[in-house]
Design a protein around this nucleic acid. Structure first.
Length: 787
DNA sequence: GAGCACTGC
């Protein structure tokens, strides 16, 4: 992944230091030396006359129309002038004066700009020429919810400013920092800015921050808003622009101390909205019918149909194709191209949405049509040109978190009015369009909520709490969230972090917790990683943690389920799914990360590649934080038990015990759960540790490994304090073990103890060697033959 | 014997 011409690192300023000192055009590279912080530009400089925070539209226009680029000292290119003409036609240009006035007079500005207004590319530039952050040795940040947006917008703006991407304009996303010492405008993901805040809590390196797409209310944007509100109170010099695409601006204004509002019209075409007169019983059937009706009776133009998930979409595609074929044979309409779209689809399949609609079969015959059947990936992340008709059944899968049982689940639920509007808007990007809503107008008005619940109200907050504690926000209950999460969700997070040792009993961040927060992982995974040297298996746990933080690697196509299951069985480890994942990773590396090999073994290459990336990132953090990288020799009998013990040190709260009736109960919570059918375990071990609890048709625990009761008691005594247990079978079993231990300890003669200790010492000595990566293919072979 | 909406560090 990457943008052509993108570079990372600070090559931009290499060798530029000497030149900069004598070159007035390059003064921004050395503001301290040339003019001092807060200084101004000299007479010969294109930026001469600009006073930070006091520029005028005329000044900015004159600079843009000038001959010399103030950033590079070079004459503007022809391409620059060409782009400039187009920029001048964007609706947001008419508001430049108003924008500058508001920014001069206010710390916070809320800007609502509809699709096509040009806000994402232009506003940061208006601000750049007004702020002149280079004079203060600072930057302007503009956040985006998605990586691709950060990359592509940065490239576009670099072109508009006639500079090389990574120099004055750059971007920063996970796994890729495309900025340099000369960067003054930085596009970045919101998550990335939040990461930075953990080491720079007052965001000193920025003179202004633009939060774009704030209406999406991503978890990171919400936390950033709370944080920036606090920082701004301490830093009157910091400018904050909040940009949103919806009419929900009032809420943002109120939140940011009654900030002024600037509204910029968009540039889209009208979309006529139709409702069904009666509620539809089966929205998929209704959607298919509507799609075919459009094809038969509406003029040329492509169709976008929103459904909720992969299976539903593939199913609908098949049905539309089948029924479409029948109509075509009857000569009732032109040819159809039906294309599915969802995120787990391989990239070359996703590309198909950009194909042209099929041509009519005979010249002058009925027109061909493209129908894209998509999840709400097409609502925000992907834009398909040429869509004229949208079919909106009004549903989407949404994540819901229940703190009481600590379970996240995906539920098909009605979308919000804002989302419905967004969907409809997809029909009007190239010409006037139509949107068919498969619900009544009354339902739209009365039943749909205004906005989608922000993510912060729908998810487990343990990562959020850890991050905020690291940033130095101690009082989370009184932290000014735009929408405060349920106290119970916060309590659950605090409790978990306390058990993991990240917070002490007063709720203060411990040193251990501070280190944990460095890892871009769930706290359980971070804890497991940090404890893994104790069990001499940090190399292996690194791999397991990476595999657990990427999408499922096992593919199971409907038409080849048995082959896929057989392929998976080759990697199965007798002790469970975590070690199976480790086998897969080792085999993948032993096969030189071959994508063909992945395909042959029904493995998702994209996921494995991601796991490899994540592993490398985690390994670096381990090195930086001084956590030892070590392994138990593969031929040691404790190789796998050590790994399983390390799993326990992170996931001791996610353990289930099988009851005499064959049901599993989660420890302490006593929830009845079933082993997910995807597990490689073909028996029912007494104690299992699980990675996640999913609520679908039943209560399932997924990604499971057998563990031993003794480990639970030894590794997590703080949680397995039996006085805190409700009365249950698991408690009785654990009690029995403790009694036996006490008995044994009392009757153990000193001699026996001595012997045991000696043996233990010897074992420790033999465990010290570290395996090299060269042996990894051998490891896989050995291990596979064991199974 | 069953599913993985979508992002992000």
């Amino acid at each position: 992944m990457g943008v052509a011409g993108a570079t990372s690192g600070d090559s931009a300023s290499n060798g530029g230091q000497a030149a900069a000192a004598n070159n007035p055009y390059l003064a921004h590279l050395q503001p301290a030396a040339s003019s001092g912080f807060g200084g101004v530009y000299g007479k010969s400089h294109p930026f001469h006359g600009l006073i930070p925070g006091k520029t005028t539209v005329e000044q900015q226009l004159a600079i843009e129309a000038g001959g010399i680029n103030g950033f590079t000292g070079q004459p503007y290119s022809d391409k620059y002038r060409e782009i400039l003409k187009k920029r001048q036609e964007l609706p947001v240009q008419k508001q430049r004066g108003n924008f500058l006035k508001l920014v001069h007079e206010n710390q916070f500005v809320v800007l609502v700009g509809e699709t096509g207004s040009g806000k994402t590319t232009q506003i940061p530039q208006f601000l750049l020429f007004d702020e002149l952050p280079q004079l203060k040795g600072k930057m302007i940040a503009c956040t985006q919810p998605r990586r691709v947006a950060a990359m592509s917008v940065a490239q576009r703006v670099a072109d508009e400013l006639d500079v090389k991407l990574s120099e004055e304009v750059g971007y920063s996303i996970r796994f890729e920092d495309c900025t340099s010492k000369s960067t003054v405008l930085k596009y970045m993901t919101d998550g990335m800015l939040l990461r930075e805040a953990m080491t720079d809590p007052t965001l000193e390196r920025y003179s202004a921050i633009i939060l774009d797409e704030a209406h999406e209310r991503t978890l990171s944007t919400d936390i950033l808003m709370g944080l920036i509100k606090e920082v701004a109170a301490k830093r009157p010099d910091l400018k904050v622009i909040v940009m949103s695409a919806t009419l929900d601006a009032e809420k943002f204004q109120r939140y940011f101390n009654d900030a002024p509002l600037l509204t910029v019209p968009g540039r889209t075409f009208p979309v006529e909205v139709f409702y069904t007169p009666e509620p539809e019983r089966d929205y998929v059937e209704a959607a298919i019918k509507t799609a075919l009706q459009i094809h038969m009776s509406e003029p040329e133009g492509d169709v976008l149909l929103f459904l909720t998930g992969e299976e539903e979409i593939e199913d609908a595609c098949r049905k539309i194709r089948a029924q479409g074929d029948r109509l075509i044979q009857q000569g009732a309409c032109g040819p159809l191209k039906v294309i599915p779209l969802y995120s787990t689809l391989p990239p070359h399949m996703q590309q198909r949405i950009f194909e042209q609609a099929p041509a009519p079969r005979t010249e002058g015959g009925p027109p061909g049509r493209k129908i894209v059947v998509s999840t709400n990936i097409a609502e925000t992340s992907l834009t398909i040109d040429g869509i004229v008709y949208v079919i909106d059944p009004g549903f989407a899968k949404q994540n819901v978190y229940n703190p009481r049982v600590r379970v996240e689940s995906l539920l098909v639920s009605p979308i919000s009015k804002a989302a419905a509007q967004q969907r409809a808007g997809r029909a009007g990007r190239t010409r006037p369009g139509k949107c068919f809503r498969l619900y009544t107008e009354k339902a739209f008005v009365k039943e749909l909520q205004e906005q989608t619940y922000p993510e912060i109200l729908r998810c487990n907050l343990s990562v959020v709490v850890l991050q905020l504690k690291k940033i130095g926000i101690d009082d989370l209950v009184h932290f000014d969230f735009m929408d405060p999460p349920a106290p119970e969700t916060l309590m659950r997070a605090l409790e978990l972090l306390n058990y993991l040792g990240a917070l002490d009993d007063e709720g203060e961040l411990t040193e251990f917790g501070a280190k944990m927060s460095e890892f871009p992982l769930d706290p359980q995974l971070a804890k497991m990683l940090m404890d893994s040297p104790k069990f001499k298996c940090s190399q292996e746990i690194l791999s397991v943690a990476a595999m657990l933080s990427v999408p499922n690697v096992f593919m199971r196509p409907r038409e080849a389920q048995r082959q896929a299951d057989a392929a998976k069985a080759n990697f199965a480890h007798i002790d469970g799914d975590h070690l199976t994942l480790l086998n897969v990773y080792h085999a993948y590396r032993a096969q030189n990360c071959s994508s063909d090999w992945c395909w042959d073994n029904f493995l998702n290459h994209r996921s494995l590649k991601a796991a490899d990336n994540v592993r490398e990132q985690l390994r670096r953090i381990m090195e930086r934080t001084g956590i030892e990288l070590t392994s138990t020799p593969f031929d040691s009998p404790s190789y796998y038990t050590n790994i399983r013990k390390a799993l326990v040190s992170g996931f001791f709260m996610q353990v289930a015990h099988v009851e005499r009736n064959g049901h599993y109960l989660t420890v302490k919570d006593n929830q009845v759960v079933l082993l997910h059918p995807s597990t490689v375990l073909d028996r029912k071990p007494e104690w299992v540790l699980y990675n996640e609890f999913v609520l679908t048709s039943k209560n399932y625990i997924r990604t499971i490994t057998e563990v031993r009761a003794e480990w639970l008691l030894d590794i997590a005594p703080q949680y397995y304090d039996l006085s805190t247990f409700p009365s249950c079978e698991a408690k009785r079993v654990l009690e029995r073990i403790l009694t036996q231990r006490k008995f044994r300890d009392e009757h153990d003669s000193d001699k026996k103890k001595d012997k045991r200790e000696k043996k233990e010492k010897k074992r420790r000595r033999t465990d010290k060697s570290v395996i090299s990566s060269e042996t990894s293919s051998k490891m896989v072979r050995l291990n596979m033959s064991k199974v």
